[in-house]
Design a protein around this nucleic acid. Sequence first.
DNA 1: GCCCAGGTGAAGC
DNA 2: GCTTCACATGGG
Length: 301
Amino acid sequence: MGVSCQTFFVSNYELGATLSSGQAFRWRPSDSGGWRGVVGRRWVRLTQTSGAILAETPLPCSDWDWLVDYLQLRIDLDLVLATFPDEPPMRAATDACRGLRLLRQDPWECLASFILSSTKQIVQIQQIVDVLCNCFGSRIPTLEKDREAFSFPDAGRLAQADETELRACKMGFRAPYLLGTARAVANGDIDLAKLGYLPIEEARAQLMELPGVGRKIADCVLLFAYGFQKAFPVDVWILRALKSLYFPRRKLKIVRVHAFATSHFGPYGGYAQQYLFHHMRLALPGRRSKHQASQRVAPTI
DNA sequence: GCCCAGGTGAAGC
DNA sequence: GCTTCACATGGG
């Protein structure tokens, strides 16, 4: 009935890397070879061909701005890459994957997802988000038979849940954090729609008022949802990498790392961070032996 | 069984 | 102030 599809011509866009690089958690490889996911209340299938991305959605669609914005198709990546520091680690990361992009996600979904991310592997975050959407989201139409999909539950819906229901979604100790934040958003203690217009420091401070949101998760939301491209999330992997690359054998305070990162990686530090993060992760999935896992050393970059 | 995972908040010095 | 620890759950 209302099926819509659209082709977007792109260059330097690695769709798979972008959708699976740990910034969004609702994309899976599709049976047909592309990627299936949910953006807002739309199920979408994206397929990359040479020089283009094909988008298919079961709902009628005449205006594709929502997807152009989500995929950040108008970004001139070369301009971004040119601002990176010219040094071996960055070159290695950009050589390994030219075309990794930052998405522009819905702030609430991004915030809630990253609250669930703490001390979880990306695969597990995906699983938790899946269960959460199945339990609390609304069913939406798909283009794949026998595969149902659900929207990401809004803050108001989760605010009505109780902690036990959330824990049933396998999120463990994160349940009270998500619940508290959902209630703060739902009752207007914080206005997510306004954060994007604030200076980054103020937006970050407001996010960090929320339960379960510290510096790292706040930076993820600033970067992946609001497009503050200077935001530089420092997780365990980035921390190890920066230590071994720039501060070998020195005890390091985290504030020092943030100061270094913001000055060293330039105005698109968030992009640089994502390239470094993705590059490190490339050496990981499935290839990680018990021996390597116990070494506590950042992969060589 | 053990260690780790895109951390945070609270308790202990 | 800074350091240490608990917090659920699942994978390697």
